[in-house]
Design a protein around this nucleic acid. Structure first.
Lengths: 105, 105
DNA sequence: TTAATCTATCGTATATTTACGATGAACGAT
DNA sequence: ATCGTTCATCGTAAATATACGATAGATTAA
């Protein structure tokens, strides 16, 4: 991003943009789809399903976690990730609200 | 972004991520809201409503136009921007589809 | 305890984003 | 034809994002 004039916008707009940013990479879209499909939760399984190194997948998970779209739960030596349905619903509602209005021209 | 392994993902995921990227800045969220509220379409009016220089607003408009969420129509010396309802609906549907599934854990 | 496994984080190279002033191109009006 | 207005584009500086290998920390198994 770089030098975003964050303070000049509303909290709602900043939050919505932040959620969108978390969704702005194909790997993170894929991760969310895998998790919502419940195929699997373990990081190792996600790494197997993605064309990226483990370190990179971990970075993407961190970004999704940052905005609260997913959560990680320690399960022995592994970590189980899952979507946060509450925040997912919140994001969906906010996007819906913006998308359902009618434009001009 | 930098070095995105674009070829490794599905077109659907890449497109969805691209739309999300277009929404990933508060200024662009604000622009979309203004346009969907139909308050105005002219670039000059958008510049007045945003805490950014004209050149910067123009850049944000370009990004929204790139993914087809808005369109510009020449109106004499001015340009009228408006949302593209068809593409907006398409984006909404794709996001809805992803958001409405149920997670694990 | 030691070894093996799993995941996060560090360090780093490269690319992209954001912001702005300055400039250019197109148009209407004089 | 010239001027003023409107908007896009260029050039550039600073900040972020992406990717990866290497390493650290935590846990289970032996």
């Amino acid at each position: 991003m770089a030098v975003v004039k964050t303070k000049e916008f509303t909290k709602e707009d900043i939050w919505l943009a932040d959620v969108a940013k978390a969704l702005s990479h194909p790997a993170r879209i894929r991760i969310l789809k895998i998790l919502t499909d419940m195929e699997s939760c373990m990081v190792g399984n996600l790494v197997d399903k993605l064309p990226l190194a483990q370190a990179t997948v971990s970075q993407h998970l961190k970004e999704l976690k940052r905005v609260g779209l997913i959560e990680g739960e320690i399960d022995g030596p592994k970590i189980c990730y899952c979507v946060n349905n509450k925040n997912l619903a919140k994001a969906k509602a906010a996007l819906d609200k913006m998308f359902t209005k009618i434009g001009c021209c």
